[in-house]
Design a protein around this nucleic acid. Structure first.
Lengths: 191, 191
DNA sequence: ATTTTTATTGATTGACGAGTCAATCAAACA
DNA sequence: TGTTTGATTGACTCGTCAATCAATAAAAAT
């Protein structure tokens, strides 16, 4: 059975299985065995490729960020005006894929994990910084010196709405986008 | 040494130690042994009083809700107008005690835990419902039929701002209150 | 004074889980 | 053909941890 060039395939399978398993249990208390089984291989192989459970988590988190980043870029290319770009950023955060239960679970858990794991904290800071920087960039022409303040509020609202949809409220990207966009409008109404 | 009437004292010590331990590790991966040691007793005694780790977690969560509820009531009694009551609700969410690192950690973890534990989910729903109901009640005279919508937005913003302060942004209750209050104002400016 | 109840722990059990290792197998290579 | 190299796993180690239990001790109740 052993073929050559398995590494990237196995790694991807493991990362996806990790996210799926986190989604299934709702927590990070998942065993490498379960993950490996879901990915169709032995636990030993998982260790062979990732070295440790921790690094596997890290890779899964990075994968989420990569997917999110790709989506942001996809939305942004179609947007011409600053206003359109802002809406694109908001839409990207509430895109359907982000509401897959397993993705929600993974994000929530990585948030918590960032409290104790330096690597996770670093990745999360990257995400925060990127979102803020994107928002400020497109808010600048519309809000001038108030751009950073508004960006912070919008970013917080995105997170809050996301969390609420993650627990209880039936996930609904459309109303989430509307809610955030509405607040954005109010904040932009001069004064 | 054995005295009578120890139960309430032990229970409280265990609940507080649980929250402290969760704060120390940043996760729910805490051992009953560590908790018991912190509370100055043997692990066996912890099981004697709570029966299981799960129930100990539940009790700790309930404790957080109780403390929060008490603070809300304390803030509300001093408020006369609907507007003042709304501000009181916002203030209660960002009260200094809520920014103790261990309290932050506990809340975050219970959020995640609510995904897999029915009891935790129930408690969280209670908290959400109470906050929403409080907000709607005082928004009604100011916003009429739009009260529920605005309440939802404000609640989400509270959660989002709270989370952001929990990770990275230096905890600052004052600016958090200002940020939420500002959005509230914008949403109340008719139309 | 004897019994009952409450408090308390050391020792133990039973399970599980991360990570290691040696061995196997097949392809590529020389 | 023989050797190196990547893929793969079963079996094992070592540790941890939740939960149980039997035993001890002191108060309270009778």
């Amino acid at each position: 059975m052993p073929k050559v060039g398995m590494e990237p395939i196995r790694r991807e399978a493991l990362v996806k299985a990790t996210i799926a398993e986190i989604g299934a249990t709702g927590s990070l208390e998942v065993t490498v065995s379960k993950i490996a089984k879901r990915a169709g291989m032995s636990p030993a192989l998982a260790h062979h490729y990732f070295g440790s459970k921790e690094r596997l988590f890290l890779a899964a988190m990075q994968h989420l960020l990569t997917v999110y980043g790709a989506w942001v870029r996809r939305e942004l290319v179609a947007a011409e005006t600053p206003r359109a770009r802002l809406e694109a950023l908001i839409r990207a955060s509430f895109e359907a894929g982000n509401f897959e239960p397993e993705v929600i679970a993974a994000w929530l858990n990585f948030y918590v994990h960032a409290q104790s794991d330096a690597g996770a904290a670093r990745l999360l800071r990257v995400y925060h910084a990127r979102l803020r920087s994107n928002l400020v960039h497109d808010l600048r022409p519309l809000a001038g010196h108030k751009a950073p303040e508004i960006a912070e509020t919008v970013a917080a609202l995105i997170d809050g709405v996301y969390i609420r949809h993650a627990l209880g409220t039936p996930p609904d990207g459309v109303s989430a986008v509307a809610r955030v966009t509405d607040v954005l409008d109010r904040l932009l109404e001069a004064r």
